[in-house]
Design a protein around this nucleic acid. Structure first.
Lengths: 154, 154
DNA sequence: CTAGTTGCAAAGAGTTTGCAAGTTG
DNA sequence: CAACTTGCAAACTCTTTGCAACTAG
């Protein structure tokens, strides 16, 4: 992703201000392991936990702002919470495998799917803008790398 | 999809009752062109328009009930409204191409995508349960079969 | 300084639920 | 009739917003 300094400059250029809250929000996302996502609530509680004074409203506002600047992307697989992830520059569209047992979401990419999707959009006379696939699954009993699975397996 | 009579029988078997409201809801979905979806609000206003006395709450409740029986499926591409579609029996997982200009959703299937998804789930040691792909797109200027596009095109 | 930002609490949108009255089987 | 459903309105959840106090540049 773009260096933080560049992002901060971009903020100012657009007439926005670099507040401590925004700085921390950016930090959190830049340090988030690739493939992880945060909701406004989750972001809020992380920030609360680590001294940073922030309100839930500001958490929501920062996410919206950063998403509108193309720094974050809204992804929606947890039904009721919108989640946000960092947009990384090298990136090709990626998809999510969501464990219906524990809710864990893993990312993956696929050229085959991408190519097929482009072709399909074309066939409908549409131009593809974004692609999101959600693959709901349960982990197999033998290889239980899903924490919840171990609990429920009797 | 399964014959209405069978569905009604199934209702009774499970201790549910066949109320006029439920009967109409089922009718509406059975007569809906393949690939169309309804939200609770939309269903409610269709039913209101055509004499059937129904409340919004019952509209929500019927959708939930029918979804829990596997008659309807929840699909979520319009951000804020949950939509429901009829589950048709012959069906393979299908996907949605969503026009970001007018919101129109077209359905499509793809063996290639299905096969790829199965393989990927397997690679993660997961068993695929459901697959939903959302392909966001705009229609191409030359072939504007999207109503809104014509308006906005200056 | 002054325009942008924050926190708070109130307002909104979509959905669910408690309850008394009404229906189905 | 008894159990299930309905309509209504109130409650809930997630998110947005108005406003006065605050702050970055």
């Amino acid at each position: 992703m773009k260096p933080k300094e560049q992002l901060f400059l971009e903020l100012r250029t657009k007439g926005f201000r670099l507040t401590p809250q925004r700085e921390r929000v950016v930090d959190i996302f830049y340090n988030l392991p690739e493939g992880e996502h945060l909701s406004a609530e989750a972001l809020y509680s992380i920030l609360k936990r680590e001294t940073t004074d922030i309100s839930l409203a500001t958490s929501y506002r920062s996410l919206k702002l950063l998403a509108s600047m193309g720094v974050l992307r809204e992804v929606d697989f947890s039904e009721d919470h919108k989640q946000y992830e960092l947009v990384r520059d090298e990136e090709t569209p990626h998809h999510h495998l969501i464990c219906i047992t524990c809710g864990l979401a893993k990312e993956f990419e696929s050229d085959i799917i991408l190519k097929e999707a482009l072709g399909i959009a074309n066939g409908f006379n549409f131009e593809m803008v974004d692609l999101q696939m959600k693959l709901y699954a349960t982990c197999l009993p033998e290889k239980a790398d899903c924490p919840k699975r171990l609990e429920t397996a009797s």
